[in-house]
Design a protein around this nucleic acid. Structure first.
Length: 108
DNA sequence: GGCGTGACTTGAA
DNA sequence: ATTCAAGCCACGC
């Protein structure tokens, strides 16, 4: 069975605890492809319907860049707020406080 | 089989 | 300090 690059991404995203968020770059770096953060985002595009909490994944600045890909822009924000994350101006409040880095949390 | 795309990141000017 | 530009790799047509 050949696991795709995406499956790795999904595995990590699914490990994100509730009330926490991570960035594409963090995941990419965890996979060893720091410059390939785009692939992570691409994987998220496929993540729909795969039990992958893509709404917990934002860009390196805590900005909800992919909110439009949820169908409607407010869904992602609503989901994050529902988990206790405050969103201000399409950005995560206290981003560094809720930031979840697989490199650290998984203690690679 | 080749070209373009894409929810980002980092580095340099 | 901010703004511009290039890089990265897999998937779709």
């Amino acid at each position: 069975m050949e696991y795709s690059f995406y499956d790795n991404v999904y595995s990590i995203v699914r490990l994100i605890p509730k009330g926490r968020v991570t960035s594409y770059g963090a995941i990419a770096k965890y996979l060893g492809t720091t410059g390939s953060a785009r692939m992570v985002g691409w994987a998220m595009n496929q993540a729909h319907g795969k039990n992958v909490p893509a709404h917990r994944v934002v860009n390196g600045k805590g900005l909800l860049t992919g909110k439009h890909h949820f169908g409607t822009p407010y869904i992602m924000q609503k989901l994050l707020e529902n988990e206790g994350i405050e969103i201000i101006n399409d950005q995560v409040s206290c981003f560094k406080d809720v930031f979840w880095d697989p490199m650290i949390e998984l203690d690679l």
